[in-house]
Design a protein around this nucleic acid. Structure first.
Lengths: 114, 114
DNA sequence: TCTTCATTTGAACATCTGTTCATATATTAA
DNA sequence: TTAATATATGAACAGATGTTCAAATGAAGA
């Protein structure tokens, strides 16, 4: 039997799984979160902010990267609402803004350590 | 104060966070898992296998992609020990091989739905 | 106002990633 | 053995991604 032009072997199983599958938009949104955490530099930033809020250049020092590189990455995390900002004069403090992401990270931390 | 050549503002905070930060290898391994789930095509494969085991061409039908594209993605998931295989004659059945990944996915599913 | 400094931004670049296409492997049935 | 079929593989390509560098904001202090 064919589903969207590709030959499949067990149509019943395929249709059943298609029923359980989340909507494509949901899959995309899930993938977006995972993608945000999939780059070691970006993940390190989030891990650093797990301890406490930090300003951009302190994050840069923690991650041994330029302010510019960190700022570019923070923009991605900001867009996804994973981090939020707080301004104090010239300095901008970043912190985690998503409890689910914290849970995801703690779970994967537990994973690599066991 | 300088840490690895980058000016930082609050040395105490930076050093404290550096203490809490996981080892770089651990960060890399965490990122690898997230990267595996960061591509929508690959995530859809894993989601499909969450329901039950499937053969390659049924996964291709579910995902509306060629057998070849699916096979390439399955190799990545196999390398990371996220999925395992079972051969039955000509047909090879794939299934999830990592409970932590299942937990990660369920958590992010819950996230996008609430 | 002018200068300093933390942060942001945009363009350029090299690298990485996912898909396609053609081909190879491996198992079954004839 | 030969043909058919499920899966795997390698090279090639286009598109995405992360970093760098130079330049632009924008807030604070002189």
């Amino acid at each position: 039997m064919d589903i969207c032009g590709i030959k499949c072997i067990n149509e019943t199983k395929v249709k059943e799984t298609l029923n359980f599958l989340p909507a494509n938009e949901d899959i995309t949104r899930m993938a977006d979160i995972f993608k945000a955490l999939s780059d070691p530099s970006r993940l390190k930033i989030v891990l650093a902010l797990l301890t406490r809020e930090h300003c951009v250049c302190d994050i840069a020092a923690i991650c041994c990267q330029t302010d510019s590189a960190i700022s570019h990455q923070l923009r991605i995390l900001r867009t996804l609402k994973i981090v939020k900002t707080r301004r104090a004069g010239k300095i901008i403090y970043y912190s985690i803004d998503d409890d689910h992401v914290i849970a995801l990270i703690n779970m994967s931390l537990h994973h690599v350590r066991h």
